[in-house]
Amino acid sequence: MMTVESTLSLLKAYHEAWERGDQEAGIAFFADELVVHMGGDGPLAGVYTGRDSFVRDWIGRVADYTDVWEVNGNDTLLVGDDGVLLLVHETWARGDRSVTTKRLGYYRVAGGKIVECYFSDMNQPEVDAFFGGLT
Results as ranks from 00 to 15, higher is better:
residue 100 T to R: 14
residue 98 S to P: 06
residue 119 F to T: 10
residue 21 G to K: 01
residue 101 T to P: 04
residue 71 V to L: 08
residue 135 T to M: 07
residue 121 D to H: 14
residue 33 E to F: 04
residue 123 N to G: 11
residue 131 F to R: 03
residue 39 G to I: 03
residue 17 A to V: 03
residue 31 A to N: 01
residue 62 V to D: 02
residue 25 A to S: 06
residue 79 V to A: 14
residue 84 V to I: 15
residue 9 S to Q: 12
residue 50 G to R: 02
residue 98 S to A: 13
residue 4 V to Q: 14
residue 38 M to R: 09
residue 22 D to C: 09
residue 68 V to K: 07
residue 48 Y to K: 01
residue 30 F to Y: 15
residue 124 Q to F: 11
residue 62 V to W: 02
residue 81 D to L: 03
residue 7 T to G: 10
residue 92 W to R: 04
residue 40 G to H: 09
residue 109 V to G: 05
residue 56 R to N: 14
residue 83 G to Q: 00
residue 118 Y to A: 13
residue 75 D to S: 12
residue 97 R to N: 10
residue 134 L to V: 14
residue 99 V to G: 07
residue 118 Y to T: 13
residue 4 V to T: 12
residue 23 Q to K: 08
residue 75 D to M: 04
residue 68 V to S: 04
residue 11 L to Y: 06
residue 80 G to D: 06
residue 117 C to G: 10
residue 73 G to Q: 01
residue 49 T to C: 07
residue 127 V to Y: 01
residue 107 Y to I: 04
residue 88 V to D: 08
residue 69 W to Y: 14
residue 42 G to T: 08
residue 134 L to N: 08
residue 53 S to M: 00
residue 59 I to Y: 09
residue 66 T to V: 13
residue 9 S to W: 00
residue 65 Y to E: 09
residue 84 V to L: 07
residue 66 T to M: 00
